[in-house]
């Protein structure tokens, strides 16, 4: 990662240079989209969040203080925007619940959560990745963030700590708890043949 180039691009964006935004988008689109997709498990939602993130970068480039690497700053925006999107969905569901109290309403129908297939997963790991994303979604927010950044985005522990603005120790503890929780939850997902062994 060329941090100096990324800083220069952010500086140019703050001056309103559209070409700099295009270049930055070319560099970070995969990182932003992939993180949002892992978090939201929906391609349409991930594209919405990707748009939100780059609009935010365009508007907030001048407020980038340079205390962290630009990639860390962009990861942070992505996680926050993904969380905002999930909160918005939760509010919609709550409204749906209120609507469901009135009989004959469409919202009364139960919602089936779709099974998510990550487009980047290696073919031989597709089945396992599908199960992984089902259990990731059951984790508490902080553990989910730490796990996705570490195990899906493949960031070093220190980078995860920088993105989440936590100490290295706190991230290691979060990851340990996340893995323990995932192992417990996987008990319910194990195939019948393995369960009998």
């Amino acid at each position: 990662m060329d941090i100096a180039l990324h800083r220069k691009l952010l500086e140019d964006i703050s001056k309103g240079k559209e070409t700099a935004l295009a270049e930055l988008y070319g560099i970070f689109k995969g990182m932003v989209y992939n993180t949002a997709l892992s978090y939201l498990q929906d391609q349409h939602a991930a594209e919405e969040v990707t748009q939100d993130v780059f609009v935010k970068i365009y508007q907030g480039a001048s407020s980038f203080e340079g205390k962290s690497a630009p990639s860390t700053w962009i990861y942070r925006i992505t996680i926050n925007k993904a969380k905002d999107y999930l909160d918005y969905q939760k509010r919609q569901k709550r409204f749906g619940f209120v609507s469901s109290l009135f009989p004959g309403d469409e919202a009364a129908k139960p919602i089936d959560l779709p099974v998510f297939d990550h487009p980047g997963a290696i073919l031989e790991n597709k089945e396992n990745a599908r199960i992984l994303f089902q259990v990731i979604d059951l984790l508490p927010e902080q553990q989910k963030t730490a796990f996705i950044l570490s195990y899906v985005e493949d960031l070093a522990r220190q980078e995860v700590a920088d993105v989440m603005e936590l100490s290295l120790k706190a991230v290691e503890s979060l990851l340990q708890r996340a893995k323990n929780n995932l192992r417990k939850k996987l008990e319910d997902f194990r195939p019948q043949s393995r369960r009998n062994k």
């Binding site: 992939n34 990550h118 790991n125 990745a129």
Partner: peptide, 8 residues
Amino acid sequence: SMRGAERA
């Protein structure tokens, strides 16, 4: 299972 996966 997501180790080595490509970025979407």
